[in-house]
Design a protein around this nucleic acid. Structure first.
Lengths: 355, 355
DNA sequence: CCCGGCGCTGACAACGTTGTCCAGGGGCTA
DNA sequence: TAGCCCCTGGACAACGTTGTCAGCGCCGGG
């Protein structure tokens, strides 16, 4: 091959982003028309084998790759969907993200994603950036509570599905886990094992799932005719420091809680740490956590959890999204997936006999 | 005279589903020129406050959002980078992915990512799809061993940084963890605690890190003048079944290994399970795992690990990528980040006295 | 031998945006 | 008051692709 650089180096003063060969270059080299190259690249019929060969040769020789930006501009569809979640590094979102990706892949779409870091402003910024890219659809784990900014986008045809938490002040599809039911089950489970003073360590009360879990806690307590002391409930950011302090306060109170219900996996892990660090009490503190996590079964005792299948959540949402993109109409739907209590020991510990 | 074009619809109020207003529409409504709208949208100087107000009003009224596809086509830069990794759901890649995203965000770029599922063909497919989108740069955790297909892309100006494993048959930047050193340290640590028969459970030997870790294992054994029995080394897919079988074989041999070195976090977790399920032996088996993982400190005993900071890996790679994008030249660099042995108990268990 | 039809090919416009360049007007200075 | 410059605004081309449509050659049937 004596071929030299693809596309004669242009004399433009400012070095442009990689001067890549275009279909025009390929056409010129193959001695055919522009549209014929397009036909070959897209596998459209109506090209002589001989012509096709010549074009293919030119393509390889020049290292041509179709510019999808131009294609997108022309066709209108981007074959990509956006995923906005809270934190990619959170083990809860990994499988979810992966599931969405799998579904997207099955539909020939790429996935663009970003983390909102639980910041509504950043969520909006991300979502709108994705809309500007003209993603075909959006899967959103919302951080904010007002999604009216999405109305023009949705009206323009951007399919949108909310996951884990519902949209705020706007009607949209949503796929949720049964936070209320799961939380209720957890607390009822603790009560059934004899606990009366149960602490709840939850996420920021503004987060829908946190509120629902709190509601489940109250419902279960109330059904059992148990009072709830203010000091037994602590909502707020789930950074280890705050959770650690809150748990310690509950456990060191004059009438300490005998069981703890942790509102999500981050909280659970911190609580496990706190409990492990405390001098072993006569009666160990019972614990149930919302969200399953790896190795929960290998701790001693194993950690009883309310499991929600985050991959299933993602898969369901993505399926729904692509059904909308395929033209499925109808009112916004709300899908609620069940949770499952997995007893492993920590949730079955009895309260102190003295209680 | 063709009135079929949807963009030039005569009446503004009714807009077809899926048809978005363009700058032209905004210009018409505001009674200004096209370029003036562009100026307002991009915050360029040279627009009277009054004109700007009119344009802004038209923008909000129509729900206009700039079409970045067209912008990209015109400008050549996409302000997005691609990340190809093995599995988003793997806890090792979550923080890495997040770190890359943070750096991208700091540079005003979006992140498009995909999982190769350790399949070279899928990796190539993904990478080329990203190139077709004209991402500015790529961060790749390679699955394959031949990346010559990337040569035209890199020549065309797509910055590329490989992470965790080097590129195959091509010169490119790479950010790696010190697999050899880490592995060597782990095995030497076990030897220092008296072990002579040490098993190594690793990933597919084709994977660079797996090969390096194996090399570290052999080096440490050899330095200590210890022989390595074939049955002590097992490389292959890291699915629980295979790992479980391999570990069991080593532990049940006539002369069983007294310590295990697990080649990555998935293997480690499986080994922990295997050990936990076996009837407690007189002398527990020592264990060191490559990669740290959450809760490793809370198991009994705590799991000694060779920690590599996956977030740091991602951050370093992304930094390097953007430095290249900002014009940093020079030969491809290979950055090797150190690993750290974290003793937690499982790696300090002595071998049986009878040994 | 001629004509219709069909299969292949290419010229051209359009997608929505940005960069270039020019026109017009108002303010300031001489 | 005239001239000049700056400030604002707009017309136009170009980015690389795809859809439309027309032309050209070839073949078979009349």
């Amino acid at each position: 091959m004596t071929d030299t650089a693809p596309g004669t180096a242009s004399r433009t003063p400012t070095r442009r982003y990689g001067t890549r060969p275009t279909m025009k270059d390929v056409a010129a080299r193959a001695g055919v028309g522009l549209k014929t190259v397009s036909r070959v690249v897209n596998g459209e019929p109506g090209v002589t084998p001989d012509t096709e060969r010549r074009v293919q040769e030119a393509i390889t020789a020049l290292g041509f790759r179709r510019n999808d930006s131009a294609r997108i501009l022309r066709k209108g569809r981007t074959a990509s969907i956006g995923l906005v979640l809270e934190d990619l590094a959170d083990p809860f979102y990994g499988p979810l993200s992966r599931a969405v990706e799998e579904v997207a892949r099955a539909h020939g779409a790429l996935l663009i994603n970003g983390s909102s870091a639980e910041d509504p402003e950043r969520e909006q910024e991300l979502v709108l950036a994705l809309c500007a890219r003209r993603v075909d659809g959006l899967v959103i784990i919302p951080a904010g509570h007002d999604h009216r900014y999405l109305a023009p986008e949705m009206a323009a045809g951007v399919a949108t599905v909310f996951v884990d938490r519902p949209a705020g002040r706007i009607d949209a599809d949503a796929v949720l886990a049964d936070s209320f039911g799961g939380s209720h089950d957890a607390v009822a489970h603790l009560i059934a094992h004899g606990h009366r003073r149960i602490g709840f360590l939850g996420d920021l009360p503004g987060i829908h799932t946190a509120a629902e879990r709190l509601r489940g806690y109250h419902a279960a307590m109330s059904e059992a005719g148990l009072p709830v002391h203010d000091a037994w409930v602590s909502l707020g950011p789930t950074d280890p420091e705050r959770v650690r302090a809150a748990a310690t306060t509950m456990l060191d109170a004059a009438e300490p809680v005998t069981a703890l219900f942790a509102g999500n996996n981050r909280v659970t892990v911190t609580v496990v740490r706190v409990l492990a660090e405390r001098p072993a009490p006569a009666t160990p503190v019972a614990l149930i956590g919302f969200d399953d996590f790896e190795l929960a079964d290998l701790l001693s005792p194993g950690i009883t959890v309310i499991a929600q299948d985050s991959a299933q959540l993602g898969r369901t949402a993505a399926d729904l999204l692509f059904r909308r993109l395929d033209g499925a109409g109808g009112d916004p739907r709300r899908v609620v997936l069940p949770t499952r209590l997995i007893p492993r020991g920590s949730g079955e510990l009895p309260p102190p006999a003295t209680s």
